[in-house]
């Protein structure tokens, strides 16, 4: 039976997904063994009821992210935090020392050349006071640090998981790598 795999991004730059795609032709090797059930790369809009491995990029920064990650955790066997944003909130967290309203005001009003109004729309998710790494919200099973983690690291991690092992990445990657 093929392993059900999902990937998603929260507050990140999608760089980790790019690095994932950089696995290149080796993707073909794993393609036979997995079923990609949910991802920005596929068309499914609803997170499935059961997933073996979910790879999450990005930090928890908005109420949407918060709801999403809680839902993912509920329906996932192994949760992988991919990249520094997911693990230590990285660049998105650089706003944390500053109050949210001040940041938004700075971005959309003070520094705006035209149309300087505060963005407000029901579709826009509210920002959390503090950007958090995933493990501060839900338990995480595997951490793959790096900004982004190299394609080799990601490939190794996925391959290990598919073989039923929890990967040891100590020698392969680190914060900022």
């Amino acid at each position: 039976m093929k392993a059900k795999i999902a990937t998603t991004w929260l507050d990140g730059c999608s760089g980790c997904h790019m690095s994932f795609l950089d696995i290149d032709e080796r993707l073909l090797a794993i393609a036979d063994r997995i079923e990609l059930v949910y991802s920005p790369l596929v068309d499914n809009k609803v997170f499935p009821d059961y997933v073996d491995v979910t790879i999450v990029e990005g930090a928890v920064a908005s109420v949407d992210d918060l709801a999403k990650i809680k839902k993912i955790r509920k329906h996932t066997k192994y949760l992988i935090a991919l990249g520094d944003c997911a693990i230590n909130a990285n660049v998105p967290s650089m706003r944390n020392p500053i109050p949210v309203q001040e940041i938004i005001n700075r971005a959309y009003v003070e520094n705006a050349f035209i149309h300087d109004v505060m963005p407000k729309h029901p579709a826009l998710p509210e920002l959390l006071a503090r950007v958090m790494p995933i493990h501060e919200v839900v338990p995480v099973d595997v951490f793959i640090p790096g900004c982004p983690p190299s394609n080799d690291t990601i490939f190794y991690a996925v391959a290990e998981l598919l073989d039923g092992r929890i990967p040891d990445l100590t020698s392969k990657t680190r914060f900022g790598a």
Binding site: N88, N90, S93, M94, C147, R174, F175
Partner: peptide, 8 residues
């Protein structure tokens, strides 16, 4: 402190 390795 704020140890953001990636942009350090």
């Amino acid at each position: 402190r704020n140890h953001t390795c990636s942009v350090c």
